[in-house]
Design a protein around this nucleic acid. Structure first.
Length: 480
RNA sequence: GGCGGCAUGGCCAAGUGGUAAGGCACGGGUUUGCAAAACCCUGAUCCCCAGUUCGACUCUGGGUGCCGCCUCCA
């Protein structure tokens, strides 16, 4: 069996994955600042890392998967005053919106969703330590981190401080020793939320929260730290600086970053105001289709968002869903436990990974085992989702030809978080609808095909329902 | 200015030092009363130039174009 290999931003190379503790993975994903609804750029990041997490679980790792909420910052304060609601209320609303979106995209719940404001004490303690070490200092009213004090500064983003200064867009602050020094603690202005600290009433800077939560929840060094590629600099760079000065240990062994969603060749972002929220898209696109669209491209490369692309994805997902039906009894699939949830609770050497279970399940069939191995190989190679998806289509061809393999197709899709059964829409058959269907059937039986075609058209145009005749004389209804 | 990524058939998109997965769309055919689905067939020599090599789309150098980070940002 091939080993898991992944691209590490830190080394800029693909590396074989080895966890710190056998069979366990500590995984920290930078989450959202909850001042607004999530957009599809967030969706991509969380889908990508959800799929990666599912693969780790599949390989048999017990994954501690942490995703934080940044629930206090300037944008939250600004937005809440604009809306005339308390910052706490704003945060609460956006967090529940976040979970709605995650559910719609079939993203598994993280092990823990820590909030920044629940870790102020831990942040203060780290800042104090950095002050005592002479790495942090008081710059006017702010407490700042001195980037010159950390030798490794720039090692993640491959930036040199000298180069940064040359083309700097950073505002020059007279108080800072170096323009790239960043704020650890800032004072609250009149009317702003605040927490007490040795440096007065205020709130933490952005970066320090992750350092504090990683240390508290996962320890000084973790296996994987992940986020969007825009977080590489300065966020992750600054996290490394703080944490490593504080603990004297590497923050994370593997750094994973996903590429952007772009619109018309531009990065989609709040500041450019060229974004779509997840809810915008979900209004007329099933979650599984959006998920497919956002993960069919290699996770480190940009994706160009377009409605054509979404339509293409819809067709593709439908094709897979049809193939599952051709190769298996769909009703039996609905009751199946997702393989990624099927983790052995027993620890120790006797544990059986989902991978081993799946292999055993299909060991009778060399052909299906081959599909499974190819699929595993694709994911083990730096999570090559595109290749994995192409194997799904190869398998769907097999399903049609052999009238089997639907179960495997379903399970492999599920490993990518694509719930194909989800597409089945429940069409409510009203009496009126039923009457037309019946008339059409009668017309058909009387070989009055002009009439039956006319009724098919009525179903289509006035009910939005496509009727598909079956070999056995029955029919299926499809929503258009 | 510094650092980095990308450039593959109409569109989207994998990939390997030995002559290019998959998806969508198009065309032809099989099947079907019709339709849908499925199945079969058809289509690219991989941005340009030079080099290394028996052989490069895949390696090296140069160029062109697009994008990202260097400010909040998934």
């Amino acid at each position: 069996m091939s080993k898991l290999v992944l691209y590490n931003t830190l080394s800029k190379k693909k590396e074989t994955f080895n966890s710190l503790v056998p069979n366990k993975v500590s995984f920290y994903l930078c989450g959202v600042t909850v001042y607004d609804n999530c957009h599809i750029g967030h969706a991509r990041a969380y889908i990508v890392f959800d799929t990666i997490r599912r693969h780790l679980m599949y390989l048999g790792y017990d994954v501690s998967f942490i995703q934080n909420f940044t629930d206090i910052d300037d944008k939250i304060i600004k937005r809440s005053s604009e809306k005339g609601v308390s910052w706490k209320a704003l945060v609460k609303t956006n967090i529940s919106s976040f979970f709605e979106d995650m559910d719609a995209l079939n993203i598994l719940r993280a092990s823990v969703y820590p909030k920044a404001t629940d870790h102020i004490r831990e942040m203060i303690s780290i800042i104090k330590d950095l002050m005592e070490k002479g790495i942090a200092y008081q710059a006017g009213d702010d407490v700042c981190f001195s980037v010159d004090a950390f030798e490794g500064y720039g090692k993640l983003s491959k930036k040199k401080l000298e180069d940064l200064v040359a083309g700097s867009r950073v505002e020059v602050s007279t108080e800072k020793k170096n323009p790239f020094d960043f704020v650890l603690w800032k004072p609250a202005k009149e009317g702003e939320p605040f927490w007490g600290s040795p440096w007065g009433k205020g709130r933490p800077g952005w970066h320090i929260e992750c350092s504090a939560m990683v240390k508290k929840l996962l320890g000084h060094t973790i296996d994987i730290h992940a986020g969007g590629e825009d977080l590489v600099f300065p966020h992750h760079e600054n996290e490394i600086a703080q944490s490593e000065c504080h603990t004297d240990h590497p923050l994370a062994n593997y750094w994973l970053h996903n590429g952007f969603v772009k619109i018309k060749d531009e990065k989609m972002s709040k500041s450019k105001n060229n974004f779509f929220t997840i809810k915008d898209i979900l209004k007329d696109t099933p979650g599984v289709v959006l998920r497919y669209f956002l993960m069919k491209v290699h996770y480190r490369l940009p994706i160009h968002f377009s409605s054509d692309g979404l339509e293409e994805s819809k067709q593709a997902v439908q094709k897979l869903a049809e193939a599952v039906k051709a190769g298996a009894n769909v009703d039996s699939l609905k009751t199946l436990m997702p393989i990624s949830n099927d983790i052995d609770e027993e620890l120790g050497s006797n544990r059986i990974s989902p991978q081993d279970r799946l292999k055993t399940k299909f060991s009778e069939s060399p052909e299906l085992t081959e599909f499974l191995n190819r699929f595993d190989g694709a994911l083990n190679n730096d999570f090559n989702f595109s290749e994995a998806v192409s194997i799904l289509f190869d398998l769907s061809r097999y399903c049609y030809k052999n009238k089997k393999g639907g179960l495997l197709l379903f399970l492999l899709s599920e490993r990518l978080g694509l719930n194909l059964v989800e597409l089945e829409s429940e069409i409510i058959v009203t009496e009126e609808l039923q009457a037309i269907i019946q008339s059409r059937n009668e017309a058909k039986q009387n070989r009055n095909f002009d009439e039956s075609d006319r009724l098919r058209d009525v179903l289509k145009t006035t009910f939005g329902v496509e009727i598909v005749d079956q070999k056995d004389g029955g029919y299926l209804l499809k929503e258009i």
